[in-house]
């Protein structure tokens, strides 16, 4: 089965500290930008997330984006939300995605459509993220569709990812939910963007107490925040995100806010790398993808490891 394993999974299993990036697909019908970003991240990220109509704004589909990344020689992690598709569409899309060579899947609930550019649309949420994870696992391990019907041949064999938000409430529930996701089939996690390192430490402590770091690969989410203005905006408008005031202050005071942003992000990565149970870092620099190589380099994460038998691929 090893030939079926994704590059991402192989790296985790080799014990590498994994670096992933993120590309937000465009609000257009061209994949050129995605391929360009993918090439840009090549050699800096081991895999790249493709968001699924993030913040409920219509964008080029995450699966198609994943194919663009593949074409550019990269390793995609396709995001799949529960907001826009029922279980029929989700399973159909999963079959399609796998048939096109996508092997990593990140399962999420999805932002409510009221945040996006079609706030009057209906939502689906036929299955939730837990059920989605379980569904993908059953398709792979039990070779059955959600209804129990057998997948006669060529079942999709995804490396299953999920998300965890240590900054949402109630605090303890975040760990329980993470465990529940592992029980449902999640193999790796990418956390919400971490600014509050202390709270993340407490989160990881609870996760370790329950042995979750040994049952899954936990990747810490980080984000270079371009300016004090952006940080302020995020604090105000992005739900479930703890943006500390001293970070905003630090950016405000800096002569070169962008350089300072990189510096902060690098410090965070260096810190997170040493948190027990953290197996990688997920850098979310949507809209500022070009800064990722600098951050990866400064954080001392180069060169990226090779996977024997796999060609050197981009993020």
């Amino acid at each position: 089965m090893s030939e079926n394993k994704s590059r991402l999974q192989t790296l985790f299993e080799q014990g590498e500290f994994v670096v992933t990036g993120e590309i937000g697909p465009p609000k257009s019908a061209s994949g050129a930008g995605i391929r360009e970003h993918a090439k840009h991240l090549s050699g800096y990220c081991d895999a790249t997330n493709l968001t699924d109509n993030q913040t409920a704004i219509v964008r080029l589909s995450s699966i198609a984006s994943g194919v663009h990344v593949l074409q550019a020689g990269g390793e995609p992690i396709v995001q799949m939300t529960c907001r826009d598709r029922n279980r029929i569409a989700i399973q159909s899309d999963l079959l399609g995605a796998y048939s096109l060579g996508i092997k990593n899947l990140l399962c999420l609930s999805g932002d409510h459509q009221s945040f996006g550019n079609h706030p009057t649309s209906a939502n689906v949420f036929d299955v939730d993220s837990l059920q989605l994870i379980r569904m993908v696992k059953r398709m792979r391990d039990e070779k059955v569709f959600a209804c129990g019907e057998e997948i006669k041949k060529d079942e999709p064999r995804f490396f299953i990812g999920a998300v965890a938000n240590p900054f949402a409430d109630p605090f303890e529930v975040r760990v329980y939910r993470m465990e529940k996701k592992i029980n449902a089939g999640a193999q790796f996690f990418q956390t919400q963007i971490i600014f509050d390192l202390e709270r993340f430490d407490r989160f990881m402590e609870l996760a370790r107490e329950r042995g979750l770091h040994e049952r899954s690969y936990i990747m810490a989410g980080v984000m270079p925040v371009k300016s004090a203005k952006v940080a302020g905006y995020m604090k105000k408008f992005v739900s479930g995100m703890a943006v500390p005031d001293d970070m905003i202050e630090r950016l405000k005071k800096a002569e070169d806010q962008q350089a300072e942003a990189v510096e902060i992000c690098v410090e965070q990565i260096k810190y997170l790398k040493n948190v027990k149970g953290v197996k990688g870092v997920h850098i979310m620099a949507v809209g500022w993808e070009e800064i990722v190589p600098t951050i990866v380099e400064k954080a001392g994460l180069l060169p990226r490891p090779q996977v024997p038998g796999l060609a050197q691929v981009a993020g």
Partner: peptide, 12 residues
């Protein structure tokens, strides 16, 4: 035209 489902349960 498309219905405004935000006024239904979909809107929360």
């Amino acid at each position: 035209l498309e219905k405004d489902w935000s006024k239904a349960r979909d809107g929360g």
